[in-house]
C-alpha cells in the first residue's frame, strides 16, 4: 500500500556549511580532478577512458565536499571503485551480448557487494556501468580496467584528499581507514 503520509517528508534539511568549508571543498576537488584528468589526458588515452572521469567527479563531491561521510572514507573510495570495476568488467565479458542486461547486472551486483564488504561508495555504480557502456577502448582493457584507470585514479584522488583535507584546522580526514 502506498503511504502518502510518508511522502510528505516532515523532517528538516541540514544547515548550509560555512564559506570556509565551501572554499576547501572547491580547492580539494579542483586539485583532485585536475590530477586525475591530467594523468588520463597525457598518459593514457584520449577516447573512451575519459568517461571514467565522470565517475571520479562524483567521488570528488564526497571526498572533498562531505569528508565526514562514511561513504567518503578511504575504504569506501578505493574498495568501491576497485570492486565495482571488477564486477563491471566481468559483467561485460559474460553478458556483453546483451548490453542492457550486462549494465543492469554490473550496477546492481556492485551495490550488493559494496554493501556486503562495507565499501559502499555511490560513484562505484558509475565505474561498474562505464565498464559495460564505455565502448571498445574500455572493453579492450579487460581486467586492466580495474587497475588502470579505476584503482590508480582513486588512489590519486585519495592522496590529494589526504593532503588538502588536512590543511585547514577545521577539517580532518579520514575518519577511519578500515
Amino acid at each position: 500500500m502506498i503511504s502518502f503520509e510518508k511522502m510528505r517528508g516532515n523532517g528538516q534539511s541540514p544547515p548550509r556549511v560555512s564559506l570556509v568549508e565551501v572554499f576547501w571543498s572547491w580547492v580539494g576537488s579542483f586539485v583532485g580532478i585536475a590530477a586525475v584528468a591530467l594523468m588520463q589526458y597525457k598518459l593514457v588515452d584520449q577516447t573512451g577512458l575519459l568517461m571514467l572521469i565522470g565517475s571520479f567527479g562524483a567521488s570528488a563531491v564526497l571526498i572533498y565536499g562531505a569528508i565526514r561521510s562514511p561513504l567518503a572514507q578511504p575504504r569506501n573510495l578505493l574498495g568501491g571503485h576497485i570492486l565495482s570495476a571488477f564486477i563491471g568488467v566481468t559483467a561485460f565479458q559474460w553478458l556483453g551480448g546483451q548490453p542492457w542486461l550486462a549494465a543492469a547486472v554490473a550496477v546492481s551486483t556492485s551495490i550488493a557487494l559494496m554493501h556486503l564488504t562495507k565499501t559502499l561508495h555511490p560513484p562505484g555504480g558509475a565505474t561498474a556501468l562505464i565498464a559495460v557502456i564505455g565502448g571498445d577502448s574500455v572493453h579492450h582493457l579487460g581486467y586492466l580496467y580495474v587497475v588502470m584507470p579505476a584503482a590508480s585514479g582513486a588512489a590519486v584522488m585519495l592522496i590529494v584528499a589526504l593532503i588538502v583535507n588536512n590543511i585547514p584546522k577545521t577539517r580532518k580526514y579520514p575518519e577511519f581507514w578500515l
Binding site: 523532517g11 541540514p14 556549511v17 565536499g65 562531505a66 565526514r68 561513504l71 567518503a72 577545521t170 577539517r171
Partner: peptide, 12 residues
C-alpha cells in the same frame, strides 16, 4: 552548525 563541515545525516 556549531560543528564545522558537512555532516551527512538528516536531523531527524
Amino acid at each position: 552548525k556549531d560543528i564545522q563541515g558537512y555532516i551527512d545525516i538528516s536531523p531527524g
